[in-house]
Computed example of a mutant assay.
Amino acid sequence: MNVRIEFTYRTPKGTESVFSSEEMPAKKALLLVEDLERTKRMKNLVFIDRHETAWSLKELKKQMEEIKTEPHHVTVYFDGGFDLKTKRSGLGCAIYYEQNDKSFRLRRNALVEELETNNEAEFAALHLALQELEILGVHHLPVTFVGDSQVVINQLQEDWPCYEEALVNWADRIENKMDQLGIDAVFELVPRKQNKEADQLASQALSEVEITSTWEIT
């Protein structure tokens, strides 16, 4: 959860001014406010999230305590592969997250037969990841999605136009699911070699090797 800090600062002689910070992780914002409160010159303090919702100090602390028990600090790696000979697609995703002060990795893949292109498989892999996030209970949080498909990432960021009906339908499904879960998506395009884990999961799916696992990272 990211927020910005807004407050009024008052000098000993009564001069006041309103300050607003840059956006930052809520945990960092709470640490800064804890230090600022020692001056006893701050008032009208609020935290503003990405949806322009205002939180009091008490409300934000309570929210952060609740978040600890739910999956957060989520990063998703996704990849899809399409076999022209068999007309089958392999989907793979690796989800890294924290919960109850521990770190976890979830790996999931799937073999599907109703797709027609590699680009569709890439979109479908991201949609598979969103389904896993929903099962995990991830909601109303920023999530980083990492992939090597320029088509998927540039179209979802609206940097590239989308003309193919099949891809438009996938993009709509993904955006609707993100809206439903309240996810603030951050997309990161990486070279294929930096997306090896998701790529391997997609390849294993095409080889009919099913992977579903969750491990604690120590």
Rank of each mutant, 00 (worst) to 15 (best):
residue 26 A to I: 04
residue 119 N to M: 06
residue 76 V to C: 02
residue 1 M to K: 02
residue 164 E to G: 06
residue 154 N to W: 07
residue 183 I to C: 06
residue 181 L to T: 12
residue 3 V to N: 03
residue 37 E to Q: 13
residue 58 K to S: 15
residue 140 H to K: 14
residue 102 K to E: 11
residue 48 I to A: 03
residue 82 F to E: 10
residue 93 C to I: 13
residue 93 C to D: 07
residue 215 W to Q: 15
residue 58 K to C: 10
residue 88 R to K: 15
residue 125 A to D: 05
residue 169 N to V: 10
residue 176 N to I: 08
residue 34 E to R: 00
residue 109 N to L: 10
residue 43 K to V: 02
residue 30 L to W: 01
residue 29 A to G: 00
residue 158 E to A: 13
residue 60 L to Q: 06
residue 209 V to P: 00
residue 67 I to E: 03
residue 65 E to N: 11
residue 30 L to S: 03
residue 149 S to H: 06
residue 5 I to S: 00
residue 197 E to N: 04
residue 10 R to A: 03
residue 5 I to H: 01
residue 144 T to E: 14
residue 120 E to S: 06
residue 121 A to T: 09
residue 67 I to C: 00
residue 22 E to I: 09
residue 188 E to L: 14
residue 215 W to M: 10
residue 30 L to H: 00
residue 118 N to D: 04
residue 55 W to H: 14
residue 167 L to W: 03
residue 23 E to Y: 09
residue 178 M to P: 00
residue 70 E to A: 10
residue 157 Q to P: 02
residue 105 R to A: 09
residue 8 T to W: 01
residue 59 E to N: 11
residue 73 H to W: 11
residue 192 R to G: 11
residue 190 V to R: 05
residue 85 K to C: 05
residue 100 N to K: 15
residue 9 Y to M: 08
residue 121 A to L: 11
residue 207 S to K: 15
residue 154 N to M: 04
residue 195 N to G: 13
residue 46 V to M: 00
residue 33 V to I: 11
residue 180 Q to W: 07
residue 167 L to V: 04
residue 103 S to D: 08
residue 144 T to R: 14
residue 28 K to N: 06
residue 144 T to D: 06
residue 160 W to P: 03
residue 84 L to M: 09
residue 148 D to Q: 09
residue 94 A to Q: 12
residue 17 S to M: 07
residue 162 C to A: 11
residue 61 K to W: 12
residue 179 D to C: 08
residue 63 Q to T: 12
residue 85 K to S: 15
residue 40 K to W: 00
residue 22 E to W: 01
residue 80 G to L: 03
residue 208 E to V: 09
residue 196 K to E: 14
residue 31 L to R: 05
residue 155 Q to H: 03
residue 216 E to N: 07
residue 105 R to S: 07
residue 34 E to N: 03
residue 115 L to D: 12
residue 202 A to N: 09
residue 215 W to S: 14
residue 173 R to N: 13
residue 86 T to E: 04
residue 126 L to H: 09
residue 91 L to Y: 07
residue 8 T to Q: 12
residue 28 K to C: 01
residue 95 I to Q: 07
residue 49 D to P: 11
residue 50 R to I: 12
residue 98 E to F: 01
residue 51 H to A: 15
residue 167 L to D: 07
residue 51 H to V: 10
residue 109 N to I: 07
residue 56 S to Q: 06
residue 118 N to E: 03
residue 104 F to T: 08
residue 26 A to Y: 02
residue 111 L to M: 10
residue 111 L to R: 10
residue 18 V to E: 11
residue 101 D to N: 14
residue 208 E to H: 13
residue 175 E to N: 11
residue 126 L to K: 07
residue 207 S to P: 01
residue 84 L to K: 15
residue 202 A to M: 13
residue 24 M to G: 04
residue 75 T to G: 04
residue 148 D to V: 06
residue 201 L to K: 13
residue 162 C to D: 02
residue 82 F to L: 07
residue 39 T to P: 00
residue 57 L to K: 06
residue 217 I to P: 08
residue 207 S to A: 15
residue 162 C to T: 13
residue 78 F to W: 05
residue 216 E to D: 03
residue 126 L to I: 05
residue 218 T to N: 13
residue 132 E to G: 07
residue 182 G to L: 12
residue 171 A to H: 08
residue 190 V to N: 05
residue 83 D to P: 03
residue 217 I to N: 04
residue 10 R to M: 12
